[in-house]
Every structure is written in C-alpha cells, then in structure tokens.
Deep mutational scan, measured.
Amino acid sequence: TNFTTRQLTELEKEFHFNKYLSRARRVEIAATLELNETQVKIWFQNRRMKQKK
C-alpha cells in the first residue's frame, strides 16, 4: 500500500504515543485516514519490527 504523507504523519504520531492499538482505536484511525483496518494493523506490525532492528 502506498500511504500519503498525511496518512504516514498521522500513523507515526499515533505510534509515538501508542505502540499497540486497541481494535476500537484501529477502526477510528482507519476511518479518519480513509484506510481499512487491516492496512492500519499491518502498518503498526511493520513499524514495530522496524523499531526492533
């Protein structure tokens, strides 16, 4: 998935405060950013892996 700059900014901002999202928060973010819930979930999984390295 190619994310827009706005989407990436918002996802990174959320990640800064929360490494893990509740389902409710994931649904909320997905709706706000016009993404589906799975895209948000996978982005967070990938971002956590990236941070571990």
Rank of each mutant, 00 (worst) to 15 (best):
N46H: 14
N18S: 12
F3Q: 04
R48I: 11
H16M: 13
T9W: 07
Q51N: 11
Q39E: 12
R47I: 00
K52A: 10
L35E: 03
L11T: 01
I42C: 09
S22E: 03
R26M: 15
A30P: 03
E14Q: 10
T9C: 09
A24F: 04
Q39L: 07
N36F: 02
R48G: 10
K50E: 15
E14K: 03
R25P: 03
N18Q: 05
R25G: 01
F44D: 03
A30G: 04
L21A: 14
K53T: 11
R47A: 07
E10W: 02
Q39M: 10
T5N: 11
R48M: 12
K52L: 13
A31G: 11
N18H: 11
E10V: 12
L8H: 06
Q51A: 13
V27A: 14
Q51Y: 13
N36L: 05
R25M: 04
S22V: 03
L11E: 03
Q7S: 03
W43T: 01
N36T: 15
E10P: 02
N2A: 08
L11W: 07
T32N: 14
K41N: 11
Y20H: 12
A24E: 14
E28K: 09
N46Q: 13
K50G: 12
L11H: 04
N2P: 06
K41L: 10
K41P: 02
F3N: 05
E37Y: 00
T1V: 06
M49V: 08
K19R: 11
R47Q: 07
R26F: 07
K41Y: 04
R6W: 15
N46R: 08
K53V: 14
T38Q: 14
T1G: 12
L35V: 09
E12D: 04
T5D: 15
Q7P: 01
A24Q: 13
L21V: 10
L8S: 05
L21M: 03
N18F: 02
M49R: 10
N36C: 08
R6P: 06
E28T: 06
R6N: 12
T1P: 07
N46P: 00
E37A: 05
H16N: 09
Q51S: 13
L11G: 04
E12A: 03
E14F: 07
K50Q: 15
T32Q: 13
K41M: 11
E12R: 03
L33W: 05
L35Y: 00
T9M: 13
Q45Y: 05
E12K: 01
T38I: 12
R26S: 15
Q51F: 04
R25A: 05
E12F: 01
Q7F: 01
T9D: 12
T5L: 11
N36M: 05
L8T: 08
T32Y: 10
K13M: 06
A24D: 10
A24W: 06
F44E: 02
I29N: 07
R23A: 14
K19P: 15
L8V: 13
E34N: 13
W43N: 00
R26H: 00
N2I: 08
T38L: 10
R25Q: 08
R47D: 03
L8N: 09
E10N: 06
V27W: 05
L8Q: 12
E34Y: 04
T38V: 10
A30N: 06
E34V: 05
R25C: 00
K19A: 14
L35W: 00
A31H: 09
K41I: 11
N46G: 08
L35I: 07
K41T: 12
K50N: 15
K41Q: 14
F17K: 15
H16G: 15
E14P: 01
E28R: 13
R48P: 03
K13C: 02
V40N: 00
E37V: 06
E34W: 04
K13F: 05
T32K: 12
T32D: 07
A31R: 14
Y20L: 09
Q7K: 01
T38W: 10
T4P: 02
N46I: 04
E28H: 06
V27I: 13
T9K: 15
E34I: 01
H16V: 11
M49I: 07
T9H: 13
L21H: 02
R48Y: 01
R6A: 14
Q7G: 01
W43Y: 01
E37N: 03
A30Q: 02
Q45G: 05
T32E: 13
K13H: 04
S22T: 15
L35G: 01
Q51K: 06
N46S: 10
K19T: 07
I42P: 05
L33F: 00
N2W: 03
F44P: 03
T5S: 12
V40G: 03
T1C: 09
V40Q: 01
H16D: 15
F17Q: 15
E10A: 12
Y20T: 08
N36P: 14
Q7M: 01
S22N: 10
L8K: 07
V40E: 02
T4H: 00
F15Q: 00
K50R: 12
T38Y: 11
F17T: 14
L33S: 04
E10Y: 14
A30C: 06
I29V: 10
I42S: 10
K52T: 13
E34R: 14
K19E: 15
K50L: 15
F17R: 15
M49K: 08
L21G: 01
V27P: 03
L33K: 00
F17D: 11
L35T: 03
E12N: 01
K41R: 11
I42G: 10
E14C: 06
L11I: 02
T32M: 14
E34F: 09
N46A: 09
F17Y: 12
I42E: 15
Q45L: 07
K52H: 14
N2S: 10
H16Y: 06
E34S: 12
N36H: 12
Q45F: 07
I42L: 10
N36K: 10
Q39D: 12
R47W: 02
R48E: 14
V40F: 06
V27D: 04
E37H: 05
T38F: 06
T1E: 15
E34K: 13
K19Y: 04
M49P: 00
M49T: 12
A24M: 10
F3G: 01
R48H: 09
Q51G: 10
R23Q: 13
F3S: 02
K19D: 11
E34C: 11
L35A: 06
Y20A: 06
K41G: 12
A24V: 08
I42W: 14
W43Q: 03
I29H: 08
R26I: 14
R47K: 07
E34D: 13
W43M: 00
R25T: 00
S22M: 00
Q39V: 09
N36A: 09
Q51L: 09
V40W: 00
Q7N: 00
N2M: 06
T5C: 09
L8A: 06
K52W: 05
N36G: 10
E14N: 06
T5W: 08
Q45H: 12
Q39H: 07
I42A: 10
I29F: 01
K19W: 10
L33N: 03
E37R: 03
R23L: 08
H16C: 13
N46V: 07
E12C: 01
T4V: 00
R6M: 09
Q39G: 01
N18D: 08
S22D: 11
T5A: 14
F15G: 03
E28S: 11
L8F: 03
T5P: 12
Q7L: 03
T9F: 07
E12S: 04
I29Q: 03
R23P: 14
A31S: 12
A31E: 15
A24K: 13
K53G: 08
K53Q: 06
Q51E: 15
K53F: 08
T32R: 15
T9A: 15
F17W: 08
K50M: 12
R48D: 09
